[in-house]
Design a protein around this nucleic acid. Structure first.
Lengths: 334, 334
DNA sequence: TCTATTGATTAGAGCGCTCTAATCATGTAG
DNA sequence: CTACATGATTAGAGCGCTCTAATCAATAGA
């Protein structure tokens, strides 16, 4: 039952353990004859190298610690897919945790990841204070996704929320809209940048910003629209809505349809995130797409650059989102 | 920069490395005085035990290998959340992979997980042949989620798809429906059981089963409805649809609404999985809920029972799904 | 007083591997 | 024929920890 070790393979092949080690790492300067002999013995015994022992002996790690605040959020799940693909391609392994958006749980999760002495750590939208992140950065490379940082040892990968909102506003303006409201995500990750982008774009178009406090959920979206309807801004009900995210947008659409307003004929709605939700033909939501898989890839890349010592200065990736035009936006009816 | 080791702590506290080891594992029979002395030294140095070294030396593992076929599928993401919570509670760590529903990739992923000599392996809806699973089972405990197996060393956790479909049919029948069609998921995981459950329930009610070939996607749902409309079964267009999953249901609803049929007034629709999608007030889909987090918990539990040697016979968890009635089902209009 | 007994502590081997440095063949130039 | 590369192989230390068995101190029992 006990799995064979290098020693067993060496004995079977009639060579030293060191030679087996060389073969397993396919080092050069091993004669073809010995190489095949070792490989055969290994195969016959069903030998596979022990990753942890290897890691310990070589003082290197092929493990990347990943802390994701919430896997239920499809956005993070997609980023993790990207991480996994990139890690696998580079011969690295993911050890994964969730933090549940609780600083205490995130701290514990982070500590637990670090106990494996990973090559580095990737944190998806963490809520722990900057100090905890800097502490982790003292132990090894840290990459933040969907969270900014000024720390020197920390790389970041974010989507350009300002640009994303601007894309949405520009699209609506080009369709002829002028009364465009933003359903603000409050303290949610990325909400601040999206709000700024919206404001700047509106000013650029010499339009008056209308910001409605909301959250990144569908019920909050509904509520925001109800508020908008019961207490319309001066100038009247907006003809277009830039929602904080897709869920918020879906809630807003529900509320609009409930009171007999048609989307997009009466009101256009733009979401954010391009979740699988938005792609459903039933909704067919115009939305802003973040290159999630790409974000995962870049996070791994940034980490490995540090691992390999190719870079010491922090890198701040700001990915350009793109607009996905579907069926919830149209020219306002005159 | 080099992280402190047990040796460093021992030196600082003026005790042996073995004593530090005892304290770190908080073993009994350590004097309070020494214990605090060691703890202080450890804290002062910022010492944290090295999980891999510990694992190697103790010949035990706190790592659970998890292979998920596709994280983008919210169902699996939820199960992973359950796994994570249960693993964390038991002091275990998740090392995670994706297999992308490709046998070759899954094989590689599995091999990669096993290289860490995990305490066991949990496979979410794997597509590899049974032989590969049995091979893995020879290395340690294996738990399958959303996949059945007859192998002796393998535990399984599944939802009772037959019962789930029956729930949907019973609900529709009790509302007064008699022409109830099933949009079949084909080869998708769990589709066979759902189909069987539908058929059995229909027969039980002495109703004629109508099965439309489809898939677990929204476009397939649309297509299935179009087929149903263009070539209605004898007896006429069904008044209710039991979809293969939520996505399929949403597609079906789109298609129905497109041709002017109202849901639920003209046609009732039941989904399966209770994804976040179904809960959106905009859709408010009646659906069958699988206890996903619970499934994750049970998978870890089954694994740990084997790890602790508490059980050798395989266990086959068949979880009972429940019906979540929302707004897409109603009595048929007369 | 001497021996058990018990609890606290430690020496030292070893987990499965890598890595450095040493050893052992070969061939090749002087 | 020696000296010296050069390539192939191996001995042995060591990664950071745990675990067994041994040691040591202190108390209790005879």
């Amino acid at each position: 039952m006990a799995r064979p070790t290098m020693e067993d393979v060496a004995a079977k092949a009639g060579v030293s353990r060191a030679l087996v080690s060389l073969v397993m790492r396919n080092a050069p300067n091993v004669s073809d004859e010995r190489r095949t002999r070792v490989l055969c013995a290994a195969h016959a015994l069903g030998y596979e190298p022990h990753a942890m022992a290897r890691s310990l002996a070589s003082r290197t790690s092929t493990v990347l610690g990943v802390m994701v605040s919430d896997l239920r959020n499809a956005f993070f799940a997609d980023v993790v897919e990207g991480l996994d693909a990139a890690a696998e391609a580079a011969g690295f392994h993911l050890i994964l945790n969730t933090g549940g958006r609780s600083p205490a749980r995130e701290r514990a999760a982070l500590k637990s990841l670090l106990s494996f002495r990973p090559a580095g750590v990737i944190l998806l939208s963490p809520v722990v204070p900057a100090s905890a992140i800097e502490e982790a950065a003292a132990q090894g490379p840290v990459v933040l996704v969907s969270r900014t940082s000024r720390a020197a040892g920390v790389d970041t990968v974010n989507d350009d929320g300002e640009a994303g909102s601007a894309l949405a506003v520009d699209h609506l303006v080009s369709l002829g809209h002028r009364r465009i409201a933003h359903l603000d995500g409050g303290l949610a990750a990325g909400a601040a940048a999206r709000r700024r982008g919206y404001q700047q774009a509106m000013r650029r178009h010499r339009l008056h910003p209308i910001i409605v406090r909301s959250e990144h959920t569908d019920t909050a979206g509904e509520k925001a629209v109800h508020e908008l309807l019961s207490d319309p801004p001066q100038g009247g009900m907006p003809t277009a809505l830039v929602a904080g995210n897709d869920f918020n947008a879906v809630g807003a659409i529900s509320a609009l349809e409930e009171v007999g307003l048609r989307v997009p004929e009466d009101v256009s709605v733009v979401g954010y995130d391009n979740t699988s939700l938005a792609a459903l033909r039933h909704l067919s939501l115009t939305t802003v797409d973040q290159p999630r898989t790409e974000m995962g890839r870049l996070a791994v890349e940034a980490l490995l650059e540090r691992v390999r010592g190719e870079r010491a200065e922090p890198v701040r990736h700001l990915l350009h989102p793109s607009l996905v035009v579907r069926s919830t936006t149209a020219a306002p009816e005159r």
